[in-house]
């Protein structure tokens, strides 16, 4: 795990993602933070949708994991960052995994690539046998 992580505020929150219910709860938590950050309605919707894709990936492909989320500040701007971590099998071919339509499971193959389009910053850190971490940030405009 090498990519630098977003610097979350002290009020960050952590929750496990181990069931379909947790995916729903993750969406609600992201929505709450997005509102606190005063993202526009469209940006809230984009971030929550991206989080839903990533939370499902954590559950389905990573075998469950953890979401850390909080506000971030940089150069006078405020944003929301969400970090999804799992100890799953990792992704052997990152470029392939980020290609529209490619899936190793039964999905549409839009989860990672689509989520990346919906946020302002996206980092993917993965290692075969060493888990996967995806961090996303959306800035208030």
């Amino acid at each position: 795990m090498k990519a630098p992580l977003p610097d979350l505020d002290a009020d960050e929150e952590t929750m496990p993602i181990d069931s379909n219910d947790d995916v729903v709860r993750a969406r609600q938590l992201v929505r709450t933070l997005a509102q606190r950050c005063k993202l526009s309605l469209v940006d809230q919707t984009k971030l929550v949708t991206a989080a839903s894709e990533l939370a499902r990936n954590t559950l389905v492909y990573g075998g469950g994991g953890v979401l850390r989320i909080g506000l971030v500040r940089r150069a006078g701007r405020t944003g929301v960052s969400a970090i999804f971590d799992d100890d799953g099998p990792g992704i052997p071919d990152i470029d392939q995994a980020l290609t529209d339509g490619w899936t190793s499971g039964g999905g549409l193959g839009l989860g990672l690539s689509g989520a990346r389009r919906l946020v302002d910053e996206f980092t993917l850190d993965t290692e075969v046998g060493g888990g996967t971490r995806v961090a996303v940030t959306k800035w208030a405009r």
């Binding site: 469209v42 984009k46 949708t49 529209d100 839009l110 690539s113 689509g114 389009r117």
Partner: peptide, 9 residues
Amino acid sequence: AITLVELGL
């Protein structure tokens, strides 16, 4: 609608 199109669906 905006989000779905951007997502690729």
